[in-house]
Simulated assay, not measured.
Amino acid sequence: MNTTAPVDIYNSFFGFHERPFTLVPDPDFIFWSKTHRLAYTMLEYGVLTRSPITVVTGEIGAGKTTLLQHLLKTLPEDVVVGLISNAQGDRGELLQWVLHSLGVRFDPAASYVSLFQHLQDFLLETYANGRRVILIIDEAQNLNVNTLEELRMLTNINSNKDELVQLVLVGQPELRELILRPELKQFVQRVGSSFHLTAMNRDTVGAYVAHRLHVAGGTGREISDDALDMIHDLTGGVPRLVNQICDLGLVYAFSAEEHMVTKETIESVLGDGVFFGAASLNGGQANEA
């Protein structure tokens, strides 16, 4: 069975060379809303100023991972990057995640002290070779007070005035709440750059949708204004949910041989119960940025 045929027909019908709305982060489709540009500027600021800790938070689907991928594409060659996604565990386990992300071989049975010394030796050697290390932790809201404190201790490793590792923590809003706990006062003092990525307002949703339609090869007007009003209300301006319902709207319009997604199209999507995103937003009430 050829599962790609429906997607090909969908694209041909609207004149797209690829689907404009997918759930997979794609830097080629990145849309620089004011909020996303500010978030990325703070990411860059943290990296360029060698901030010990940079924190970026936002709701699920707000575009954090897309920004991270764009950052990774623009880092200079003298940067060694360790990327950890969804790390969990307590003291010692996190250190193994760090060593693994940097491609450093280690004995899993080694003591915490040995692992820490192993990491410190790697950082010193990297620094001596004129390079620096950035450790990026995605889905960092899954960490706890102990592991965050362990990460802070890594920023104490230095050579003269230069710190040997920078931390970039990216996660959901719970991460911000976690960091602000009284036990993590020392951690907060090391945060040199931070930003909270909010949802898009109605105007931004319209610009975002038109941008993705254009990038895919469309006119940017395949989704009507009244449909966009409804899409914003249903999704609260969360990019991933906007992608999901716009994609479904295009499928329904294609099925009806209509070249524009209208409010009636979106109502049909909702009526058939195929869009589950609204249930995650307290009934789909809009959340203005």
Rank of each mutant, 00 (worst) to 15 (best):
170 V>D: 00
1 M>K: 12
259 H>C: 03
85 S>G: 02
247 D>E: 11
122 F>K: 10
171 G>R: 02
21 F>T: 09
275 F>K: 07
121 D>S: 15
130 G>N: 10
194 S>N: 12
15 G>M: 08
34 K>Q: 13
154 L>M: 12
219 T>H: 11
158 N>A: 14
30 I>N: 02
106 F>H: 08
69 Q>L: 15
172 Q>C: 06
40 Y>K: 02
177 E>Q: 13
89 G>E: 02
52 P>R: 05
277 G>F: 01
174 E>P: 03
205 V>H: 03
211 H>Q: 08
206 G>A: 13
271 G>F: 09
59 E>F: 00
20 P>L: 07
58 G>D: 10
229 D>S: 14
89 G>I: 05
108 P>V: 08
186 Q>D: 09
19 R>A: 13
120 Q>W: 08
220 G>D: 09
270 L>P: 05
208 Y>I: 04
87 A>I: 06
136 I>K: 06
202 R>P: 04
21 F>V: 12
183 E>A: 14
253 A>L: 03
73 K>C: 04
192 G>M: 08
289 A>V: 04
25 P>F: 08
150 E>N: 05
47 V>H: 01
187 F>P: 00
93 E>Y: 07
265 T>L: 01
75 L>K: 09
201 N>V: 00
149 E>S: 11
10 Y>T: 01
66 T>P: 03
13 F>E: 06
254 F>G: 00
101 S>K: 07
53 I>E: 00
98 V>I: 15
122 F>I: 07
16 F>G: 03
103 G>N: 11
200 M>R: 03
154 L>P: 01
23 L>E: 09
261 V>L: 03
273 G>K: 15
59 E>M: 03
249 G>D: 07
246 C>M: 02
76 P>G: 07
217 G>Q: 12
6 P>G: 01
125 E>G: 06
91 R>W: 07
236 G>V: 00
161 K>D: 12
22 T>D: 04
254 F>V: 06
258 E>L: 01
144 N>E: 05
197 L>Y: 04
88 Q>E: 13
112 Y>G: 10
105 R>Q: 15
283 G>C: 11
186 Q>T: 10
135 L>V: 06
146 N>E: 14
232 H>M: 05
219 T>F: 12
2 N>R: 12
141 Q>M: 09
68 L>P: 00
218 G>D: 10
161 K>Q: 14
217 G>R: 08
5 A>R: 14
86 N>L: 11
197 L>N: 01
22 T>K: 07
171 G>N: 03
145 V>D: 03
23 L>Q: 14
81 V>S: 05
179 I>A: 02
80 V>L: 09
33 S>R: 02
84 I>N: 02
47 V>C: 06
231 I>S: 09
229 D>E: 15
242 V>Y: 00
137 I>Q: 02
270 L>K: 12
286 A>E: 13
202 R>W: 07
127 Y>F: 15
97 W>T: 05
160 N>M: 14
83 L>C: 06
221 R>E: 15
28 D>V: 13
268 S>W: 11
284 G>W: 04
125 E>R: 15
278 A>Q: 14
154 L>V: 06
224 S>F: 01
63 G>W: 01
281 L>Y: 11
257 E>M: 10
260 M>V: 15
123 L>W: 05
28 D>C: 08
121 D>I: 13
